[in-house]
């Protein structure tokens, strides 16, 4: 189920604004790939173009190719809605559906497109998804309570459980811990380590220690200057990026001597 992602000469635009310039990279399956870089360098934009969420914004579009195990996701015949079923996403702030119970939140993705699911199958899916997100023991007695009643960290794990309930091939995470306290962050990071056994995980983070802790490969994005499009500066094994980067800009960013 875990699949390889290739970005080929990917250029991303918001209307007339050229946000990201010609990204070429291969993201390996069964691994965690971290995107790092300063604010506004386009790392979230690249992430959102992988599951075609970028084009949800008015006037936003993409040029180039995103291949999922060799299949171009930007081919004319591709339905973006179906792409998003294969590539799940977790957002910066936990966003469980406030009007739904914990159980209904997990089933939200499965219930789409008129698909029906028997009660016993649903029960099983809710349990396996919540267990997959290390949340089952904390919520198993209150599955019918609203998801918005959980703590921030629990809500974020609920969102991860919701994303993996539709059994995607890839899991994209856009700064998943930036709104969480250190203990919750640790719980989510542990979870990410477990998730990579089954999924291709791509995580955007502002926290370099986090990138160093959880990822196998790291991609550093940067802007040449303000108003210029963001670029992929360096991409390689996390160990190498953090200890022996090839580019001066990467080293400056990693060591905190930026700008």
């Amino acid at each position: 189920m875990s699949k390889r992602i290739e970005l080929k000469d990917l250029n991303i635009f918001y209307g007339k604004f050229h946000a990201v310039k010609s990204v070429n990279m291969t993201i390996e399956p069964r691994a965690v790939t971290a995107f790092i870089g300063s604010s506004g360098c386009g790392k979230s934009t690249v992430l959102r173009s992988i599951n075609r969420m970028h084009e949800v914004i008015d006037g936003a579009y993409v040029e180039g190719q995103v291949l999922l195990d060799g299949v171009d996701l930007y081919d004319k015949a591709v339905d973006p809605v179906r792409v998003r079923r294969h590539i799940g996403m977790v957002f910066q702030r936990p966003n469980p559906f406030p009007t739904m119970s914990i159980r209904e939140n997990i089933l939200a993705g499965v219930r789409l497109n008129n698909s029906r699911i028997s009660k016993s199958d649903a029960d099983e899916l809710v349990e396996t998804s919540l267990q997959g997100a290390n949340l089952w023991n904390e919520v198993k007695d209150r599955l019918d309570k609203p998801g918005s009643g959980l703590s921030g960290g629990q809500q974020q794990r609920l969102c991860i459980a919701r994303a993996i309930a539709v059994s995607p091939d890839v899991l994209l995470m856009d700064e998943p811990c930036s709104a969480l306290d250190p203990i919750s962050t640790l719980a989510v990071e542990d979870l990410i380590q477990e998730l990579k056994e089954n999924y291709t995980v791509v995580i955007v983070t502002h926290n370099m220690q986090q990138a160093a802790r959880v990822s196998d490969s790291t991609a550093f994005f940067n802007l040449k200057a303000h108003g210029q499009p963001g670029e992929l500066i360096e991409y390689g094994p996390t160990e190498k990026i953090f200890h022996n980067p090839e580019q001066k800009a990467t080293e400056d960013y990693i060591t905190g001597r930026f700008g």
């Binding site: 957002f91 789409l112 969102c159 919701r162 539709v166």
Partner: peptide
């Protein structure tokens, strides 16, 4: 955030 949560799950 709620709209995107839904779209990212593959909602039309």
């Amino acid at each position: 955030l709620h709209e995107e949560a839904s779209l990212a799950l593959g909602a039309t």
